[in-house]
Amino acid sequence: MTLLEVRDLRVEVAGIPIIGGLDLGFDTGKAYAILGPNGSGKSTLAKTIMGLPEYVVKGGDIQFEGESILNKSITERAKMGIAYAFQTPPAIPGIRLEDFICKICPDYACKGEDDMFMTNGCVCKDTLYDDFERLGIANLAKRDLNDGFSGGELKRSELFQVLSMRPKIMFLDEPDSGLDYDSLKIVGRELKAIRDEGRTTMVIISHHRYILEFLEIDKLFILKSGRLVYTGDMSDIPVLEEKGYEKFLEGVLPA
């Protein structure tokens, strides 16, 4: 069943057209890769779906569970089950990562409506810490959100937050860039577990084959200049890596 669908979507950023007539669909519980050369509109697509205000929809539609979400706020989209892991999230001083996770995750929510911060008596703390440990970022729990996190730490913190929201569809913007081998394995394992559960649709924007192959993605889309130019599957990845986008697309596209 189609969960989220983009129809003839046109998007501008600061008056410059980035996406020009894009049609795509994402089914429930499947894993997708969005690939394409730099500047092809991959991140723009994800941020537009999330509803970030700099990304202005000039035409077309985005439908989630059969309903247009163009008039929905960022908050509403997040509450409907759309999540986006930022590439470079802003620092929020004074808010600890562990408190924030507790705030956004329905499973960890053990605080009163008005409580800004988690109390010492919070019962979910053990589970929360297990999750921090498994992601290898227990050291970040008491630090301020994104404040001075390294590149690899940001990726895992973003992943943890997005997973904590229990979304229906998540867009992961280069979840693997800047990670060392160990962290890459951690991230891969985490995503695989989610994929095996089969409840969450995953859309991964990436340039690297490791995560995509590890997850055994169902489908891949290649964007170029804001348009969909190729739809394929896992078997394309090695060829793509060997040839590069330009040659690969020359070979598969009609002249």
Binding site: L52, A78, P89, P90, I92, P93, G94, I95, K103, M165
Partner: peptide, 27 residues
């Protein structure tokens, strides 16, 4: 705006996000 949008994308309402940013700032 960047901080606000970020927190809103995690499901917080605009007012809630603002008050979180403010309380963090004042900490």
């Amino acid at each position: 705006a960047e901080q606000l949008n970020y927190l809103m994308s995690r499901g917080l309402g605009k007012e809630e996000a603002t008050s979180l940013i403010v309380s963090g700032f004042m900490k």
